[in-house]
Design a protein around this nucleic acid. Structure first.
Lengths: 199, 199
DNA sequence: CGACTATTTGACCCTTCTCAAATCGGGTGG
DNA sequence: CCACCCGATTTGAGAAGGGTCAAATAGTCG
């Protein structure tokens, strides 16, 4: 519906020079109902949404290493809609007749269980805690290096959907954290984190 | 730690006369860290917990048809602790050298993605909505028949953990629903639901 | 530049959390 | 069979944290 979706269809589907598919923050990677292949996330963060009566509601996150769109192998169509929350790099997963298929499926299954718990934890506790946990998660997966406490901030709207808070609350909370020195916003879309992952 | 765990070790490990393993409400099915096999839930509801520094926190639900403990195939040990929230019936899953392994793995993967979204929805919105959604989910999976709006109520503590509410709030909310005629509690542990699944 | 969308901020209300205590239920040891 | 213990459930009163509604600002894309 937004212009982002159209850009996405172009950007997300076109393999880059390196052979991987790239998607920018906000791009739609694939839409529920359409056919396509499964991907493995090499970098970035992807938001998965389940289409429901009243629009789409948040149904999970995929970080580096996770597999998305595996349902198409079963149903021939995506069950979820995937949107990039930060610059994303994707590679094909399980192209037909691949080696080690069973092992890959098991790895994907185990990863998804872990991720479920991660995402559930993002809806636990008070606003500050939820947002801290989310940013830590994003930093751990989306950062340039594992020790770099920097995050590409998703839109407040996305943060709100993921944590089940309201946009206004997210805005206020992040401002508070910024004032309190727990985090520093740079260039309006990047944040440097100054707290420990589990605090 | 409670007596339930010991009973569980006995009850959950011992295949019944029908060849399936049974676990009663409250029984621990398996514990994180120990070795064992994977199961498919035939009936009932299982709570999965991830062990963390401060005890265990809720990490997912498994309903009829779902697979639990698939991690042992990868890591040789359970990553989660599984507890029965209602009477549960389990069957072995993927015993070595089984047919159709790939397909089963795919089915399990797809099921888990769906379940992730289900569980996330249980932490959305106000107390009444969360509890309604949870009971509907349990009724759909744990009921004797799909049209039977009856649920075995988990302990308030479990409901609270799953929905991220406090026990007191759960107690008050259920009482309210009972008074309001949205639900009728029978025999202290069963509830008959009078609302539509998505309301 | 102009239309739109995203982000901030303020004021005020409502829901849920907290703390405290009383009850209820189940199971146990006499 | 009964008194007692301990965890589970209820209830109350008051405080906090978020949600709401309204509006002003700041970005973005044509």
């Amino acid at each position: 519906m937004s212009s982002g979706q159209l850009d996405a269809s172009a950007a997300a589907r076109m393999p880059g020079d390196d052979g991987y598919r790239h998607a920018a923050r906000g791009d739609t990677i694939f839409v529920a109902g359409e056919a396509g292949e499964a991907f493995r996330v090499r970098a970035g963060v992807v938001r998965l949404d389940r289409e429901s009566l009243s629009g789409a509601d948040f149904g999970g996150l995929a970080l580096a290493g996770d597999v998305i769109g595996a349902e198409t192998l079963m149903f021939g169509a995506y069950t979820y809609t995937a949107v990039a929350l930060s610059p994303v790099v994707l590679e094909s997963w399980l192209a037909l007749a691949e080696q080690d298929k069973e092992r890959k499926l098991m790895v994907a299954l185990a990863a998804r269980e872990r991720r479920t718990a991660d995402v559930l934890a993002l809806r636990c506790g008070k606003a500050v805690e939820r947002i801290k946990r989310l940013l830590s998660l994003l930093a751990g997966a989306g950062g340039t290096s594992r020790s770099e406490p920097t995050v590409t901030l998703p839109r407040l709207r996305d943060i709100a959907d993921i944590t089940d808070l309201k946009v206004e609350t997210v805005s206020r909370t992040i401002a508070q954290m910024n004032d309190g020195g727990e985090l520093a916003i740079e260039a309006r879309r990047f944040a440097r984190l100054f707290y420990t992952p589990d605090a």
